[in-house]
């Protein structure tokens, strides 16, 4: 007895998660590039394209529900589908954070970026890297990699701390820049939340492999 049709559906859903993951990664990168270069048109594009990410999430969700209803998956298969459902939701929320960064760029208007911007570039790179590797861990059912990525959330939290401190100090030094610097703190917060959601994805990868639901790394924020 084999389940060719079912296995094909599982593979398709896994591919959908990867496609959605790359859409989200691209959204985060583009929102940050737009902010760095103050490119309003690019931010508009990120906001517009968030609709496609939302649609992808619902498409994945619908496929999962149909597969659960029609194929009655059990054990590891069921865990994969539950993980896919959850990961799609997390990715969609990450894209919302990218959209939030894009909107911050629009709110900055014609103002240039402040001289001090903290470590937001490094935060974005780190979060993007964690996201990419978490999806590789998902595809490869790599529990160990998932646990290591969870640990790396501390690095993003540390970058958040240093950025927050630098931006607050700059606010004290140049009170006129408080509005612009506040926008940057919001940006840091969005990036920090993206990394947190990567750890949620990793927790689901671990669940998928082991069947154990556990909170791996509680973010400081």
């Amino acid at each position: 007895m084999t389940r060719e049709l079912f296995d094909k559906k599982l593979r398709e859903m896994q591919d959908d998660v990867l496609i959605m993951g790359s859409m989200v990664e691209k959204a985060v990168q583009r929102s940050m590039d737009a902010l760095r270069t103050r490119d309003v048109a690019r931010s508009d594009a990120v906001i517009r394209e968030d609709q496609a990410i939302n649609a992808k999430r619902y498409e994945i969700e619908e496929k999962c529900i149909h597969t659960i209803a029609l194929q009655q998956p059990m054990a590891a298969d069921l865990r994969v589908l539950v993980a896919v459902l959850f990961i799609a939701t997390e990715l969609e929320r990450m894209a919302d954070h990218a959209e939030g960064i894009a909107r911050i760029n629009l709110m900055l208007g014609d103002e240039p970026l402040p001289a001090i911007i903290g470590d937001i570039g490094e935060m974005a790179d780190k979060a993007g890297d964690m996201l990419r590797r978490s999806l590789t861990a998902f595809v490869e059912r790599d529990e160990r990699a998932a646990r290591l990525i969870c640990d790396e959330d501390d690095q993003v939290d540390t970058l958040y701390d240093s950025s927050y401190l630098a931006l607050i100090q700059e606010m004290i030094r140049v009170p006129a820049d408080v509005p612009r610097l506040t926008y940057l703190i919001w940006t840091c917060h969005n990036l920090e939340r993206i990394a947190d959601r990567v750890t949620n994805i990793c927790e689901r990868v671990i669940f998928m492999v082991t069947g154990q639901l556990e909170e791996i790394n509680v973010s400081r924020y």
Partner: peptide, 21 residues
Amino acid sequence: EAMFTAPTDKRTEDYITGRFG
């Protein structure tokens, strides 16, 4: 609950996920 969500034996897993034989 455990048997149908996370069985410990590969043969159980294969059977209940329909991949037996």
